[in-house]
Design a protein around this nucleic acid. Structure first.
Lengths: 112, 112
DNA sequence: ATTAATTATCGTATATTTGCGATATATATT
DNA sequence: AATATATATCGCAAATATACGATAATTAAT
C-alpha cells in the first residue's frame, strides 16, 4: 500500500503541486521572505535568521533550488542565493490561470 | 531529533505555508480544478474522476476543508463540496503581498 | 424495520519529509 | 602545505503524509 500515484495525474497538476509544496513550509517561506526583502543576492546570513541547524537550512535551500524558485552561486567561501522572480511569476500565472474565478467572484453562489 | 519546529516561525509564515501545503498535492489540485469548473456545488462525482480510492479522496477533501479552501454540506445521502472563493482570494492576496515584487520585476538584477 | 447507497472514519503499511550531528568539500588565508 | 571558515552531503531517527481496505455512520427508498 501507499504506492505513489503521483504520475497518474496530469503534468500541469503535478507541476503546480510541486511549486506549492516547495513553498509549503514555514522555513522556506521565511527564506524566500529574507531573499525577497533585498534586491541583491544574499551570501550567508540565511542560517542565522532561522531557528534551524545549518544542515537543515541547506536542505530547504536545495528544495527551493529544485523547483527553480531561487538561484544559487558560489562566491568564494560563501554561497549566494536570490529569488528567481521569473519562476515566481510563472508560478503565480499558473496559479491564477487555474483558479482565475477567484478574482471576479467574491461570494459563493453555491449551496454550501 | 526531528522535533517539529513549526511554531518557532511567525504566524503569517505558518498560515501561508499551510495554504500552500494544502494545494501541494496533485490530487488536491485536481479536486479544486473540478470544483472550479462548475459554479455550483458538486455532490458526489469527485471520487470517479480521480485515480484514488474513496477513502483517500475523502482524506484529501478533509485537508482542503481544514484550511477553508472548500466548503462542504451534506445533501441527503451525498456530500456536496464547493470552492470557497473568499478564502482563495485571501490566500492569493497573502501570497502577492509577500512577494509583490514578482509583478514588477521580470528579470533578475542579481549576481546569480 | 430492512436494505441500498454514499461518505466518513479507523487501522495500518509504506513513503516522504523534517531535523540534526558528523563529516566531506571547497575556498581563502597564513 | 596547513589552517580556518562556510556550505553541502551523508546517515539516521522521528514525524508526517499518502494510500488502501474494512467498517461505521448517515440518509433514502422499500
Amino acid at each position: 500500500m501507499a504506492i505513489n500515484k503521483k504520475e497518474e495525474f496530469e503534468k500541469q497538476e503535478i507541476e503546480l503541486a510541486d511549486f506549492a509544496k516547495a513553498i509549503g513550509h514555514p522555513a522556506r517561506i521565511a527564506i524566500l521572505k529574507v531573499l525577497a526583502k533585498k534586491d541583491v543576492c544574499i551570501c550567508g546570513e540565511i542560517v542565522e535568521v532561522l531557528p534551524l541547524a545549518q544542515s537543515t537550512v541547506s536542505q530547504h535551500l536545495r528544495e527551493l533550488l529544485k523547483v527553480g524558485l531561487i538561484t544559487g552561486a558560489v562566491d568564494g567561501v560563501k554561497s549566494c542565493y536570490c529569488i528567481n522572480w521569473i519562476t515566481f511569476k510563472k508560478f503565480s500565472e499558473k496559479f491564477n490561470q487555474f483558479f482565475d474565478k477567484s478574482k471576479t467572484l467574491v461570494q459563493n453562489i453555491n449551496c454550501c
